[in-house]
Nucleic acid binder design. Structure first.
Length: 273
DNA sequence: TTCCAGGACCGGG
DNA sequence: CCCGGTCATGGA
């Protein structure tokens, strides 16, 4: 399955795992391309460097972390298989072909929730800057220049004034409300991950500043509930222009969220990789 | 200057 | 249920 190479471990074939598409399709904000072509990121307080080499995806990580990363990239799932239902309408088929290689990451729930609260009415470069600053100011240093995402407990211990250097405006109060829900145990991610997605949806929306769209992003990217289909301005446009009137994404089945990711990536890039 | 960015909330119709 | 105004901030 995975064997040691000269410089690292082979995680997968590049055929079904595109680093560029996976990290730049809009689902995550903390993976960055380095000058040498490798991507560098942090998840669950672990650092990873990962790159493509001879048609394979290779990574540098601690040996004992390899199973973790294997799961993080959802490598047990056959994405070509679960993409079979995305054959129509024609626009969706084009999106799915264009996005082949995207993996839906199993991101840290709290980080995902917080990140998509920040994302509302904001642009991606600025979202990344705010999150980066949050980690640098309130996370723990792992290696030089790389920090963990601060825990909900840590954020809950802060005031609006403490968070003011982040310059995230009205979202500050939302972040604090979310941190209190999570740190107090009123919201328990382990519980949410085990109940039906529509129940988790209702529960997470109790947080001030978490509406339908942020809730769905949290469920899809943070709890890996693949049936959720976040609808933002880009999706509204795509649905209006390329799908039948009153189209219900639920017809896409239990992995509709992957279809959403294909559509979002294609629509945002204009089909230009 | 105005508009927009992976929205949410609130009020009124 | 849907509508418009409002909420900070920064870049184009």
């Amino acid at each position: 399955m995975m064997k040691a190479e000269e410089n690292g471990f082979v995680l997968a074939s590049a055929e079904n795992f595109s680093l560029k598409k996976t990290f730049e399709c809009g689902q995550c904000f903390r993976w960055n391309l380095c000058g040498d072509g490798t991507y560098e990121g942090v998840a669950y307080g672990r650092v990873l460097r990962i790159w493509e080499e001879n048609g394979r995806i290779v990574c540098a990580a601690k040996d004992e972390d390899i199973p973790f990363w294997h799961d993080y990239f959802d490598l047990e799932t056959d994405y070509s298989e679960i993409s079979v239902p995305f054959s129509e309408p024609p626009y969706l088929r084009i999106c799915a072909e264009f996005g082949r290689g995207i993996r839906i990451l199993k991101q840290e729930p709290w980080e995902t929730l917080c990140s998509f609260i920040i994302s509302q009415c904001n642009n991606i470069p600025r979202i990344k800057r705010i999150i980066s600053a949050m980690c640098r100011l309130f996370g723990e240093e792992l290696e030089y220049g790389l920090y963990s995402f601060p825990s909900a407990q840590r954020i809950a211990s802060l005031s609006e004034k403490d968070l003011s250097p982040l310059r995230c405006g009205y979202r500050t109060a939302y972040i604090l409300d979310a941190a209190r829900y999570v740190s107090s145990g009123m919201i328990d991610f382990d519980v949410l991950s085990k109940i039906p997605s529509y129940e988790a949806f209702a529960a997470i929306k109790k947080i001030n500043g978490v509406g339908s769209k942020v809730a769905d992003c949290f469920l899809l990217y943070g709890l890996h509930k693949m049936d959720r289909f976040p609808v933002d301005v880009w999706m509204k446009r795509a649905l209006k222009e390329h799908f039948p009137e009153d189209y219900d994404p639920r017809v896409l089945g239990p992995h509709a969220g992957l279809a959403q990711q294909y559509i979002f990536y294609y629509t945002r890039t204009g089909g230009i990789s």
